[in-house]
Design a protein around this nucleic acid. Structure first.
Lengths: 181, 181
DNA sequence: CACCCGAGTGAGTGTACGGTCACTCATGTG
DNA sequence: CACATGAGTGACCGTACACTCACTCGGGTG
């Protein structure tokens, strides 16, 4: 049976997800996460002994949600061509990241990936996403690579606030990129 | 005539470039930059009154070097088709970022782009790069967008250390991506 | 009842960082 | 000589943060 600590850990991880997504690893304090999770900082350390482990847990939640969304997208295009499946996954991803949280956390993770544990967690997540997209769409390596490349471009567009600028160069970068609502 | 402060400022900016590229904005202290520049922290603050201004200066140096490299790449394919010019620019960029410094700084900048001054500086740099690639190659919006998207994928490959892993999914992401030597 | 054990916290500790300021020193100028 | 000016720094301040620890509380078990 699960102890209350085991029950609370994923709740804290979810709070860490939103907190770290806001400020990144170095820009977010454990106290910030504790406040979001409505527990004391001391107890956060009892659940996750080091700040890095908290970030890793947040990343795992992040990629969990992403893969789930991609799966739903793939379901919606069941039996279609690889392009159709990848396209539907792209739509699902675009929908998922409307609130930017999952996207921002990935960007922050990229910038601290030189910390071994954090880099490992990032690679593990990317492995899941890439493998899933590849197998589920049955697309060629080129198609999957392109899918991921445009995902990265999308991250840049959002984090740098490029779409809002409306200038010519911004249109070049963002034309045809999905953004629901 | 230039005061010695005006002469020293770009030197400090160059030091800031490498220091911030290593640790990011929050992960690098002004004292780190001062040490690299071989001056006292107090004097860094006299040259750049706030840490943000130091980072902005580093970003400007970064994009300056990138545009210069792209220009050299474009020269090497003078008169070729848009694809050929963009391809040559890509080669030049791949060569430029062998040591990862300029690449890492861009990724770090992306993760702190919500700080207004830093986001502005990032957008200004991206505007220069995108506009330059677009005008100099005379490529279509699609071609330029694709050029930038694969640049972003390249950033992910390097920062997350994906090429080293050698696993199947890593090959999917990195196949055909240039990496001289 | 006595006892234990996990949940949860308040109150700290050491350290490090952004930023300031009063100061020294060298150079040039009347 | 007296004096101004800019380069450059040491010592400091307030604050904030990662992490610790001794403690309390409440529910289960003999």
């Amino acid at each position: 049976m699960l102890s209350t600590a085991d029950i609370r850990r994923p709740i804290v991880a979810a709070a860490a997800l939103t907190a770290f997504a806001r400020g990144g690893f170095h820009g977010t304090t454990v106290a910030d996460v504790a406040r979001d999770a409505e527990i004391s900082p001391a107890y956060v350390f009892k659940l996750f002994p080091r700040k890095e482990l908290l970030f890793v847990a947040a990343l795992e939640v992040c990629f969990e949600r992403i893969v789930a969304a991609l799966a739903a997208g793939a379901d919606a295009a069941e039996g279609g061509s690889p392009e159709a499946v990848l396209d539907s996954m792209g739509d699902a991803y675009a929908h998922l990241i409307r609130d930017r949280t999952l996207l921002q956390l990935q960007v922050h993770a990229q910038s601290v990936a030189d910390v071994p544990e954090l880099g490992d967690a990032l690679r593990a997540g990317l492995a899941r996403v890439t493998t899933f997209a590849s197998e589920r769409s049955a697309g060629s390596d080129d198609q999957v690579q392109r899918f991921m490349a445009f995902g990265q471009l999308c991250h840049l567009l959002v984090t740098a606030g490029i779409e809002e600028s409306g200038e010519r160069w911004a249109q070049v970068l963002s034309h045809g990129i999905r953004h629901p609502e």
